[in-house]
Amino acid sequence: MGDTLLEIQNLHARAGDAQILNGIDLTIRPGEVHAIMGPNGSGKSTLAGVLSGRPGYTVTDGSVRFEEKNLLELEAEERAREGIFLAFQYPVEIPGVTNNYFLKASVNAIREHRGEESLDAIDFLSMAKEKMAIVEMPKDLMARSVNEGFSGGEKKRNEVLQMLLLEPKLAILDETDSGLDIDALRVVASGVNALRDENRSMLVITHYQRLLDYIVPDYVHVLAEGRIQRSGGKELAHELEAKGYGWLGLDEGASA
């Protein structure tokens, strides 16, 4: 755990015209799982958006390095190819494009970047089958349009399936637990845990402590008003759960 995978320094960012992030510092080393908790409007999703290259955000100060690269100079697709994966809070429905076709295109785009050979339909399918079993994904979801008509749980499982297929260096989970019942949460968490190893890092963004019972973090950070207000080990999440954000002198629904 010597090297640094992601280094965020003094990050300031706007979403549209609103200043949301007000100086974030965060260092993630290979193999670490960091959780970011915080009330609504604290800047959690903005942080995920800025890191993944989502349009609509402007970085006004600070820097983000990913391995040796200036992350902020890369397009969203380049970040994905370099090994950053964002599990969407609201996975997008894409009519007319089958899940199978989409996932294969995605895997091959990333393989091509890594200098690996493209997978043909048969090789891809056998690889996908193995990963689908991990997230208990019904086979027919592969032949359907991406996320179209999927239940909330199926959409989130599809996100984790993509993550398993793409094997990122850094996975950012943006409120992957929201809207899931306990069974779906368990499946999703076991998919995420299947990917944990000493080289892969995760940034788990959540509103609820519950997820962190299943995906146990190495570090917990509390985000509010666009800054990390407190950092600690996994016990910090339990303290927050017991005492509420008010314990840190923060409003439950602090404004953006």
Partner: peptide, 15 residues
């Protein structure tokens, strides 16, 4: 759909 476009790009598929 810009959101769908970003979703694909976030999966490594070029613009």
């Amino acid at each position: 759909d810009e959101e769908a476009l970003f979703y694909m790009r976030a999966r490594g598929i070029g613009q």
